[in-house]
């Protein structure tokens, strides 16, 4: 082969070989970021809570911080209030968002457009503003209180600083995303398949139960997983609206770190929260996989 032909052939070979590293590079960037920003800190936190200096100053395997968390009644109360809040929020979200999404899917016209705008609106309101609006309206000497007072009704027992405070705030905060995901799911239910069900004799409730619900169960799962994960580790709203004790894991971690100055304790709480989220996540992945199989 002459020099000239070699030169002519080379670019072909070059591009084929040089393309592969570039492709790998594109994949490598997100992978690297995930490892650096998510997996490494997670492993780091876990290892630092189980591999610690003991009293004599020697490094060793040590589960005492976990043992403390699961024997300390205050920590357990915080965990259970977090789980309770998450569960109640999930139920309320479903009860509120499903009718809204159904309404938006099956009605046309201006009113539906307004309802949609209203349902999406909370997405643009920062949690802090939401929390202060909540206090102004429902808090002690808030708008509702003043109105009740003006017409000689008894003072309300404000949900502010009770476990219901964060519940109301978190539900409001999560309505847009939940509605949007459910709406996307409902979009995949063809009008004709609903009409066919009515044609064979199904009334509105039966259509919902037998035709719509099975089709959107996946979207419900996705919507609930998203909001559950967010609510479980939420901070701002429980911090501003919730009771001082017991408190949700978010504020609890923050206080353990800043005020109690117990980084290992805070990290232990974080790892436990992380564990719960992984369980939710696995549950979601499994259900999605199972519905794919069908």
């Amino acid at each position: 082969m002459s020099e000239a032909t070699k030169q002519a052939v080379r670019p072909l070979v070059d591009t084929a070989e040089s393309r592969r590293p570039i492709g790998l590079l594109f994949v490598a960037i997100p992978v690297f970021l995930v490892i650096w920003l998510v997996i490494w800190p997670a492993i780091n936190a876990i290892s630092r809570t189980v591999w610690r200096k003991d009293k004599s100053g020697e490094m060793g395997f040590d589960l005492s911080s976990y043992a403390f968390f699961f024997s300390d009644s205050y920590s357990l109360d915080n965990l259970s209030i977090t789980l309770w809040t998450t569960l109640v929020c999930a139920i309320l979200l479903l009860m509120i968002c499903l009718p809204i999404a159904l309404y938006l899917r099956f009605s046309r016209g201006r009113l539906a457009a307004y309802v949609q705008a209203l349902a999406i609106f909370p997405m643009f309101v920062p949690s802090i503003i939401l929390a202060f609006a909540f206090i102004r309206v429902l808090g002690p000497n808030g708008m509702v209180d003043i109105l009740f007072n003006a017409v000689d009704l008894p003072k309300i027992r404000t949900p502010y600083l009770t476990p219901w405070g964060p519940v109301i705030g978190l539900v409001w905060d999560n309505i847009p995303l939940t509605v949007l995901i459910l709406l996307a799911g409902l979009g995949s239910v063809a009008n004709q398949s609903i009409e066919a069900a009515r044609d064979v004799g199904a009334n509105a409730v039966q259509v919902f139960w037998h035709i719509i619900l099975p089709r959107i169960s996946n979207s419900i799962l996705v919507a609930l997983s998203f909001s559950v994960l967010g609510i479980f580790s939420s901070f701002t709203l429980p911090y501003l609206l919730g009771p001082a004790s017991p408190e949700m894991l978010g504020p609890f971690m923050q206080r353990t770190l800043r005020e109690v100055q117990d980084p290992v304790g805070a990290m232990t709480q974080a790892v436990i929260a992380f564990g719960f989220c992984i369980v939710f996540g696995l549950f979601y992945v499994r259900s999605v996989a199972r519905s794919r199989e069908k």
């Binding site: 398949s193 066919a196 089709r215």
Partner: peptide, 11 residues
Amino acid sequence: MVFQSHALWTH
């Protein structure tokens, strides 16, 4: 009624 398409319940 028999519809044009997409009317079977796929689940």
